[in-house]
Amino acid sequence: MADIVVKTEDVVKEYRMGSNILRALDGINIEIERGEYISLMGPSGSGKSTLFNMIGALDRPTEGQVYIDGQNMSQLSQRQIAAFRCHRVGYIFQSYNLLHVRSAHGNVTLPMIFAGIPEKQRNEKAEQLLDLVGLGDRMYHLPDELSGGQRQRVAIARALANDPSIVLADEPTANLDTITGREIIDLIKRLNTDQSVTVISATHDLKMLDVSDRIVDIRDGLVERIRNRDEIDIEVGEVGGEGE
């Protein structure tokens, strides 16, 4: 039996905009296995970021349920949700969302402070993680002193601080140039294979296709189709061919 880490059941999310109601998600059902690399693909406004927020407990669905590790998220207390965000999930955002007042090192230690890890231990771990993402020599720089790619590396190191079982990445390469974007994708993929972290990424970056195990196409708030790795390989070739 497959080890399902994320399961959504008829997830609906509506936003009220004045007198209009916008239905961003219209009944999403997906299952994600542990250790998978999943890409949620779709054009802007398709609902992929909204789904990303639902899976990461960053927002509440209007209807439906989200299960993580078999736990119904709507039944968790505020304290449990905070602990879930702290320990189980690592978030990587398009705009990095680093705290500007904290150095790279300070950003990576923050989730460990929230987890109650002693100072010495968290400092060592932060150094290790920043080394891992290739920022060993810029640890004490503030985010404003780092390039886009370096900031995203800090965000990745921070996402890994409490050894999460899931890494959620929302358009992690959208603000980066092609080469830096590729490096970031490779780094995330390496974490996925080396550390068996489940990666769920909302993206419309085609470069992310060939590292994904499955692609969930989202359109108008619905799952349009789910493609497997072997189907993806063929399409990447086509995309490459078209571009040349």
Partner: peptide, 24 residues
């Protein structure tokens, strides 16, 4: 779906930690 270790409750941080973060 298999259930892993249940999700714990988040801990409260010591006051001195808040003080340090806010002054920083």
């Amino acid at each position: 779906m298999q259930q892993r270790t249940p999700i714990q409750e988040q801990i409260d941080l010591p006051f001195v930690e808040s003080l340090r973060i806010s002054f920083q």
